[in-house]
Each structure stands twice: as structure tokens, then as C-alpha cells.
Amino acid sequence: MVTTLLLWMLPVATFAEDEEAPVFENAEYNHQCFKCHGQKTYRYYNESMDREMKDRMNPYFIIDSALYYQSNHASFMCTDCHSPEYETFPHAGELRMEQQFACLDCHGGDETYAHYQFERIEEEFQASIHSTKHNEDFTCWMCHNPHTYKINARNNHNIKEVIVYDNNICLSCHADINKYQLLSDEENPSILAAHEWLPNQTLHFSKVRCIECHTEIDKEMLIAHKVCSKEKAVKRCVECHSQNSLLTATLYKFETFEKRNKLGFFNAAILTDHYIIGANRNYYLNVASIVIFGLTLLVIIIHAILRIISK
């Protein structure tokens, strides 16, 4: 009886094992770092006072290990990017001056990553207002946190989540005065006030990404990186609210690539899940409305002619 029960349970146990979170080989090594950098406090031995002390961790140096192991860089050891000298604890003070990698240092010129077009991203970024205004102070990491960043638009078909994720990247500076002033002495401009002209502000903010209007669209790239000055931002409603809505070249690019040309109808993809006045046009409704309207006019004209003739 017990054997039967065990045999019956076996596949369940195997299944449960399959469902377990992936094991990261680097986890044990990284744990040495997360022991302190994953906590709000840490302990160290203070030689001058000759005793162990507990102190608060600088909040900007706290890394959420759960988010890290979901990120694109999850398989990395901390010292793949940071100096191996960090293995010594307490860390040497000058280590904080270490040079940080940029995306192209690893991803540039590598065929494995060719479809991500890192070189082109770099080109666009160099031409963007972020780079031209702040030079080398503005790095990839300003927007893409290397410890938590994960590819979003390519993998996630939930457009709403993509929008929230991408807009939070912009808001991490433009709605946070502390980070904003890392690069600027200007007062943080109010996003709400700057967009006062925009009708249905809440709806627009939750349905489109900042980059839809604030970047120069490149049809060959999935995510445009050439962020432009506010003077160049899209302000004409019809740029989105029209049949050839620019959103099909940005936000809905992935969807339209997959579903475009169904019945030769360009906006078929947008039509199913989203509604944009002027951009959503149902092929069948268009045809039906023209036919019904035409027939109505025809009947009226024939009726009027017959009335005149029979007068």
C-alpha cells in the first residue's frame, strides 16, 4: 500500500522539482556580496576601536537579490563587472573610483547580440539630448540599472506592462529630484505642468510611453534611443491619431510586424486590443458603412426621380 502510494506520488515529486527556481552557479559566490549589499545593515570589524560594529548600508548600494536573479545579468558574478579586489573586506576606499563598464564594452561587436543592435543604440544615444547635454556623465546605467534590467518590449506581449516598465525608467530621474540633480542643477521640471496641453493626460500617460513622443523614430530599431529636446517632441495629435499612426512604428511595432497586412489592413493589430481615435479603422465596418450609405443615397435618388416623373 505504501509502495503504491509512493509510486503514485513519484511523478508529482519530479514535477515539483522541475518547477523549482533555476539554480545559479554564481549564487554562492555572489552571496558573499549580498550578505551585506542585500541588507539594510552590515557588520564589520573596526580595527581602531577593536570591536565588531553594525552599521547602516548606503541605500544606493543595496541590491535586491531577487530582482538581480530575474535580470538579464543574473548569471554574472559580481566580480565579472566589479574589481576582484572587492573580495577583500572591508573594501579599499579607492575602489569606489573604479571605472564602470558601458553596454558596448561587453555587447559591442558580438554576433550573439547583433539583433539587439547595440552599436546603433550607441549611435542614437550619442546623438540624443541626454548625451549631447551631459557628455560622459550620462551613461547607459542612468536608465538601465545593470543589477535589475531585463529585456522588456521584446519578451513581454502585455503592452500595459511594457509601458509602465519603460516609463518608470524615465520617471526614475524626471520624477526624482535626487537622481535628476546628479546631472543637472536645474530644478526638476514638473512633468504634469509641461504636459498640461495634452488632453486626457492620465489616459495618455498610462497608454503610451514617454519615448513615443520624445524620441526620433528609427524604423529599423525596436526601441529608439535618440531622445530629443522637448522642442522636437511630437505635439501634433494626428501623428498618432491617424491611420498610419506612428505608434505602429514604436509601441505596437512588434505586434504590427507579426499581424500586419492581414486583409491588407495596416491597423489590424491595433484594432484588437487598443483604441486610438483616428487610428482604429475596422475594414469591414468601413466597407459596410460605405455600402449602406451608398445604397441609402441610391434609394433616395431613385425614389425622388420616380416622384418627379409621376407628378
Binding site: T272, D273, H274, Y275, I277, L285, F293, T296, A304
Partner: peptide
Amino acid sequence: FSGIHLTGLVHIISGFGLSIFLCIHLYFCT
């Protein structure tokens, strides 16, 4: 299906229906 889109479709279809009504209404007034 998007609720806003559905509402938009209902609005457009009923608007079209009323526009057809207007055409017929104007003619019958003659």
C-alpha cells in the same frame, strides 16, 4: 477585448445609424 475600443465601436456604429436616419429624415421631409 478592450473596453474602450468596444465603447468606441458602439459610439461610431450608433453615430453612423443616426447619420443614416438624418439622410432619410431630410428626404422624407420633402
